[in-house]
Nucleic acid binder design. Structure first.
Lengths: 200, 200
DNA sequence: TGTTCATGTTGGCAGTGTCAACATCGCATG
DNA sequence: CATGCGATGTTGACACTGCCAACATGAACA
């Protein structure tokens, strides 16, 4: 039952903050967002019911921490996916596919990231990830287009697909495993490149 | 303080079911999804704390009722928007714009509709709205394309845009009022028709 | 007129978020 | 080495919640 690296296994936990986050993500995955309980997190981390309050002033603060974790990882996944690609459109595609991949790999995080309603949520949460997308979109559409509209358009597609998948709105066969999801994402982009988007 | 149409203003309420739903939507709009409380709904409806249980066996059942209401209205909004249009692409656009309009007009409903995680949620919740979209999308892309992929692609765009707006992820100026939102939706479609989608 | 049954009420239980008061221990300072 | 302080964890409490069981009311039908 190693409690992890440093800190005696006695009174103090050692890395309770991370342990609570981990427990919360597990709990949400098991029971759903609405049934998350700080006290249950504490139990799973092996501490008393009020211990998490030393690290998170409020339940919402815990969720904000999860969201921040998610945005950070999403940003890095986007960067990694676009690495080495030069054509703006290829880069945008790559980000989009990575976005959807992130969604199925970290469904709890994505859900929490876009649940807002969180009080005390820092204004610029997720800004890096957003700006990366906006710049990529602007590079595709050129300088004549309102960047905010370009960003909204480029963001909506992978975001919508991700949310629909998380909500179980996409038939199960089409999202059976990670490869299937990636294929779906690519074909969604292809459709908007082709018959859905192209000239009629 | 007329309690509405029939039913004496005494022991029995008359239309408690609808009153509870109304109160729940208000409450979520004010305090957020997570802080919805059946007891507070009961208070606002002017009944005792357990009265809602005569109409909803569980809190989730109340949310399912709200979602059903939303899907029904979304379906009818889509139908109305496409009425009189013949070109499949125009019809798909019209549905999409109506989808986003619905989102800003009924943010609570849309949020609840796509929160899933609801236990005892009927399998085919929202099927009408979905099938309408799928048929419209298939009419655009033709018979050679997997209908599930076509539906996913056509659905992702308005859904993603709606969710981003509800989450406050789109700059406030761009979604200041209903007209601005509609203009944004149209320009998102135009971008995927043009520089984002078209041949480079 | 009398009974039934949907609807509403009261009271209670276990669980929750949050707070205040207290306990323990690592660490820097003498 | 002693000491005391601040970060971290504990205990106990409060108001609130979802849900349940037992009871009350009254509208509609026999």
């Amino acid at each position: 039952m190693g409690r992890s690296k440093k800190a005696s296994d006695g009174y103090h936990h050692g890395d309770l903050r991370a342990a609570v986050i981990r427990a919360a993500v597990e709990l949400i995955a098991e029971r759903g967002h609405a049934k998350l309980s700080l006290r249950e997190c504490a139990r799973r981390a092996g501490v008393s019911h009020a211990a998490p309050y030393r690290h998170f002033p409020t339940k919402d603060a815990l969720l904000v921490a999860i969201a921040a974790e998610g945005f950070d990882e999403l940003y890095r996944a986007g960067l990694a996916a676009m690495e080495g690609l030069d054509d703006p459109r290829d880069r945008l595609d790559a980000y989009g596919v990575a976005y959807v991949r992130f969604a199925v790999q970290h469904p709890v995080h994505l859900r929490v990231m876009f649940t807002a309603e969180l009080e005390g949520c820092p204004e610029d949460l997720g800004r890096e990830a957003f700006e990366l997308l906006e710049h990529t979109a602007v590079a595709v559409v050129g300088p004549g287009v309102d960047p905010r509209a370009a960003a909204a358009a480029a963001w909506s597609l992978p975001h919508g697909l991700s949310m629909l998948i998380l909500d179980g709105r996409i038939p199960a066969e089409v999202v059976a495993d990670e490869a299937a999801v990636e294929a779906l994402a690519r074909s969604v982009y292809a459709l908007w490149r082709g018959p859905l988007g192209g000239a009629g």
